[in-house]
Every structure is written in structure tokens, then in C-alpha cells.
Simulated scan of single mutants.
Amino acid sequence: MAEISAAAVIAAAEDITGLHDFGGDEWHEALDALTDALATEAGLTEFGEVVAQGDLVGSLTRRLQVVDYRCTHPEVAEMRIERPVFIVGQVRTGTTILYELLAQDPDARAPLTWEVDAPCPPPEAETHDTDPRIEDSRQIQEMMTSIIPDLAAMHPIGPLLAQECVRITGMDFKSFIFPTMYRIPSYARWLLNADMASAYRWHRSFLQHLQSRIPVNRWVVKSPGHIWALDAMMQQYPDARVIQTHRDPLRTIASVSSLARTLRTFAAEPTPIEEVAREWADYVIDGLDRSVDARESGIVPASQVVDIQYQTFATDPVAAVATAYDQLGLSFTAVAEKRMRSFLTAQPAHEHGGHHYTFAQTGLDEQALRERAARYQKYFGVPNEPLG
């Protein structure tokens, strides 16, 4: 059996790398909260214990390696990141396809899955499309889909696809990737009240690392996790351009509950969808309320943010992107448009059978949730959708 403890994770990562400089210790409290929850709440199978320990050891190993590279290449810390574009929409609101479209722009760069899986040494321009780490990442993805066959229908995966920031902040152990992958409500509650400043300092360090050998004109990044930490995000990136996607929160809750339940079967026995939905309903509503707070307080300045309604985006994704570019003061070139349309053509909807879910399966009280979501829906003008 794998030991799920902070001490075991740290010892394993140090043993693998031979390194001991973690770039500070602000991550340690988060790792303690995470390992405690995994050991007491997650209901991990024996295989799941191996998966969870490997997940955490991998995150800490990557952190050690990036810090080591940074120490031996101090010029990396001086690299500028200017006006990055952050996609901050809630889970299952069209953020993934929007992210992939923005990543098609030759003036933009998104961190790719293989780069996040194995960031050291930093990617090189000459071998960016042929790096052997791409195949290593592909094999990891194929292993996951062999164990969770429904995953491909729920969320596109692949080594060359743009990766989400939850994987990056996971190296600081402050990330909603963990409550998505595991049933750990005490950690999620801890995370919602945590100071996220260190996670975004790490986020900047990681982007600097990735661009150290490949110049970047404009970073494009994405994570639903940003919705819970907009204050820390904007403090670290005060010149960020922000795109927030919007969708009926009840549809969002139904979809993410289905996704989380499926992902958790990788490391634990299946749990009732009703239990997962009760948990995620609280997370989603909390995040949406925080996004309203961020607008009302000016944490996210009106001049730096664009809102995209899900139905508008679904009707014509490229037109929605063009409008967002215009509002953010970005140049929407003919080359960018062509590449985006080519990407859409090559990625037909429901190629893996689609993600099937209904709100009724959650067992949640529709009226009660409508009342809880009313502030968000009214503020952003988000319409109700048929729930099914």
C-alpha cells in the first residue's frame, strides 16, 4: 500500500530528483491539508492510493526540477509576462474549446499538456513538435482513457492540447484539480479560504520557465479554478486581459458533477451522483458569487474583461472570439481566423459520443438552486436553459 502523507511525498520527490530546494515552503500547509483529506475522506482503493501518491509526488518532483533550473539560470526570473489572456469561466461553460481556439493564434501561446507533464528542461523551439516527451505524455493519456473509457467523451485530452492552470497551481498544492479527481471536501473547504498568492507566484514562475527558451508574444491560459481566486490572480497579473464565459449554473452543476464522479472512479469506487452534485453545487455557486464580487469591487477592471454567453459562443465560436478580440484591443488576423476555423473543422462535436447528463440525475432542488444563483444570473444576464 502507498503511504499518503506529506512526509512520504516529500521524501519520494527528493529521492527521485536528488534535490531539496522547493523554492520556499508556503506549499507545505496545502500539502498537509491535501494528504490528510486523501487519507481520511477519499475512500481510495489500493490502486487509488498508488495513483494519488504518484500524482502528488509527480507534482512535487516537477516543482523541485523547475526551482533547480531557475536557480542555475537566474535570468529566467527577469523575464516579462505582459498582458496575458486569462479564461476564467466556470466549469463546463465552453472554456475548453474557447481555449483551444485562442491557442491557434500564431501570436499566442498556451502551455501544452506535455510541457506541463514534463517541464524540465524547458521546451526548445527547434524540437517543440518532435520532443520525445510528447510521446511519453501521450502514453499517460492513453492509460487514463483505457481505465476511464468515458473520459474522452467528457473532456478532450492529448499531449498537444492546451493544458489548464489547475495543473500548474497543483505544483503549489492549491488547486481545484484535486477536489475534481478525489472526494476530499475538507481540503476543498480549506482551499476556498486559503491565501492563493503563492499559487499565482508559482504560476508566473512556471510560465517564465516555459518561455525561457521560446519567446512568447502573448500567453493564453485557462482554468475554472481562477474563478475562486480572481483577487490573487489580478494581484499577480494586474495587466491581465480576462474572458469570462457564462452559462446557466444549473447546467454547469449537472455537467461538472457527472465529470467529477467519472474522474474519481480512477482512484476510488463510484459514489452516488447525488453526493457529488451536493458537493459541487456549493463550489460552483461560491465561485460565481466571487466573480460578481470581483466586478463590483473593481478587482477585475471593466476595461480588461469580456463576457461571453455560452449560447452566443456555441452558435458561432469564431465570431465570438472576434468580438472578444475587438473588445480587448487585440488584432484578429486573417491567419488566426483561418487556423481557428481549421481547428473547429478537425474537431467535430461529439466525436467520442458526447457527454450525456441531466440535472434530474443530481437529485438537487431546482428552485432552491435558482434562488442561490439569482444574484449571478441577474448581474451577468445569464438565461435559464432547459435542464432535461
Score class of each variant (00 low, 15 high):
G58K: 03
M171F: 00
A11I: 09
S342Q: 15
P179A: 07
G18D: 12
V321L: 04
P272I: 08
G363L: 04
D289R: 14
P317A: 05
H226S: 10
V67G: 04
L330H: 07
Q141W: 09
T265F: 01
K378T: 14
L330G: 03
P215E: 12
A374R: 14
D107V: 02
T333H: 05
T252Y: 01
S5K: 07
A267G: 09
P121W: 02
P156N: 01
R341T: 14
P179W: 01
A52C: 06
L288W: 01
T262E: 13
A125C: 00
D289I: 01
W280I: 09
S137I: 01
A6L: 15
W219V: 03
R247D: 05
A13F: 12
M181T: 04
T17D: 13
T17K: 13
T113C: 05
G58Q: 05
S297A: 12
S212W: 06
V292T: 10
S331Y: 07
A52G: 03
D15Q: 15
V9F: 09
L330Y: 10
W280E: 09
V292E: 08
I97C: 12
L151A: 06
N193C: 09
Y357V: 08
R138A: 13
L230D: 06
R295I: 06
A240K: 05
A346M: 11
T333A: 11
T169R: 02
P106Q: 10
E26V: 10
S198R: 12
Q304D: 10
T40G: 07
M79A: 12
E82R: 13
N193Q: 15
T358N: 03
F22P: 06
V85C: 08
A346S: 15
T35W: 04
G18K: 12
G23V: 11
A13H: 13
L60E: 08
R63Y: 02
S212R: 08
P270V: 10
V220R: 02
A349S: 14
T93N: 07
P179K: 07
S223F: 08
I147M: 09
A13E: 12
Q377E: 09
H352T: 02
A37Q: 06
A42V: 12
M234I: 06
L64S: 04
Q90R: 09
Q367H: 07
R204H: 13
R290T: 03
R62Q: 11
H128R: 12
A373E: 01
L101I: 01
L112P: 01
I168L: 11
F86L: 14
R339Q: 15
V67E: 13
F313D: 03
I253T: 02
M79V: 05
Q90I: 11
E75Y: 10
L259D: 04
K338W: 02
T180I: 03
A39V: 07
A320K: 03
A125K: 11
T345W: 01
Q235M: 03
V284Y: 04
A302V: 05
R70Y: 05
D136M: 06
V66R: 03
A125M: 08
I147C: 00
D316F: 06
G298W: 06
Y237F: 15
Q304I: 02
L112A: 06
H352F: 15
L263Q: 13
R167G: 04
P122V: 01
D150C: 00
H203S: 10
W190A: 04
D136W: 00
D107G: 11
F266A: 14
A324I: 07
T252G: 14
V88P: 02
R278P: 10
F47A: 15
V284T: 15
D282P: 00
Q53L: 09
I16V: 15
Q311Y: 00
D282Y: 07
P106C: 08
